Amino acid sequence: MVPLSVLDLAPIGTGSTATAALATSTKLVQLVEDLGFRRYWVAEHHGMPGIASSSPAVLIAHLAAVTERIRVGSGGVMLPNHQPLVIAEQFGTLDALHPGRIDLGIGRAPGTDQRTARALRRGTAALGADDFPEQLGELMAYFRGDGPVAAVPAQGQDPAVWLLGSSGYSAQLAGLMGLPFAFAHHFSSENTLPALELYRKMFRPSEVLAEPYALIAASVLCAPDDAEARRLALPSALQFLQLRLGRPGPVPTPEEAAAYRYSPEERDFVEQRLASQIIGSPETVRTGATELVERTGVDELMVVTSTHDGDDRLRSYRLLTEALGGASGDSGPAHAPAVAATSGTSAA
């Protein structure tokens, strides 16, 4: 297996709180560091009652402070929501506090609904997804020290810049810029292979990478047996259905998910959602994860697990690691990108 990493949305369960969700994130990052995971990313989402990770930079500062070795970063910061200077200052500060451990994963989607996006972008009406390449260029210039103004303490700091995506746009841009690429397989599985193929086809060697380096984020839930894993996975699928129906909410309990009266269309949606995930006993998950890595040829597997109860998430990562015989994978050159020591460009 390739190295394992974590994508954390800090899910909030029905009847629980953001405080409890973030306490689970703290436990989880310490657990996976001990288990040998490579990196731990938090995702930016806004206006969602079931997700507590609306402020990645703040959460990254906390998670990095309670760990020692694991890389910590964003998966990702949604660049159109922020002025590039602000992100540069935030992640320059993080890298100054935790040198060599900070990842800056950048996305171009708003990560929220249009009304919330407008509130986030107040005063920046000219910025949007269409300006993404220009915003990205400005952001990286601040770390090099040749931005339009001085970004302190960004200049001279070196967070690892990644591009994130769920379609071909970011895949192509990451390839042309010679940056590492992270694909959102967990909610866009039908686009995974085309996007990875495009990234590798368009890749141009850079000061960052001599050859392509890609990871995918996949939904995985491991439990003692297949039935228990499906019971624990159903609430997250129902939560995603409710989001698509315009009713975002916390992660339901397994009992609520089982009792929900699904229409035929809703049942099909949930089943398709579950079918794109790796869910089951340790043996089932080992088979599914191995097949996914072999089919995609990725260099790293980033695992996202959402359950109503935080303890079930922690157990899932323990069982997954045991099933795969460890989390560090092959640490040789095939799974570690060639990195030049240039400001704002490291990737490993």
Rank of each mutant, 00 (worst) to 15 (best):
S236W: 11
S236M: 12
S236T: 14
S236F: 14
A237G: 15
A237S: 15
A237C: 14
A237Q: 13
A237P: 13
L238C: 09
L238K: 07
L238E: 05
L238W: 06
L238F: 10
L238A: 11
L238S: 09
L238M: 09
Q239F: 13
Q239I: 08
F240G: 11
F240I: 09
L241N: 06
L241P: 05
L241R: 03
L241H: 03
L241T: 04
Q242S: 10
Q242N: 14
L243R: 12
L243N: 11
L243I: 08
L243H: 14
L243T: 09
R244Q: 10
R244A: 14
R244H: 10
R244W: 07
R244L: 11
R244I: 07
R244C: 10
L245T: 10
L245C: 13
G246P: 15
G246V: 11
G246E: 12
G246Q: 11
G246S: 15
G246R: 12
R247P: 14
R247Q: 14
R247A: 11
P248D: 03
P248L: 04
P248H: 09
P248T: 05
P248M: 01
P248S: 06
P248N: 05
G249N: 11
G249C: 10
G249K: 08
G249L: 05
G249W: 12
P250D: 00
P250S: 02
P250C: 03
V251Y: 02
V251E: 00
V251I: 03
V251C: 02
V251Q: 00
V251K: 01
V251R: 00
V251H: 03
P252F: 02
P252R: 02
T253W: 04
T253S: 08
T253Y: 01
T253M: 03
P254Y: 03
P254Q: 00
P254E: 02
P254F: 05
E255C: 04
E255P: 01
E255D: 04
E255A: 06
E255M: 03
E256I: 06
E256G: 08
E256M: 10
E256Y: 08
E256T: 07
E256R: 09
E256S: 09
E256W: 08
A257G: 05
A257T: 02
A257Q: 01
A257F: 06
A257L: 03
A257D: 01
A258G: 05
A258P: 03
A258E: 06
A259H: 04
A259W: 03
A259P: 05
Y260E: 01
Y260P: 01
Y260M: 04
Y260D: 00
Y260F: 08
Y260I: 02
R261F: 15
R261D: 15
R261I: 15
R261G: 11
R261E: 14
R261P: 13
R261S: 12
Y262H: 04
Y262M: 07
Y262W: 00
S263R: 09
S263K: 09
S263E: 10
S263C: 13
S263W: 10
S263M: 11
S263F: 14
P264W: 03
P264Y: 02
P264K: 05
P264D: 09
P264L: 09
P264H: 05
E265R: 10
E265H: 07
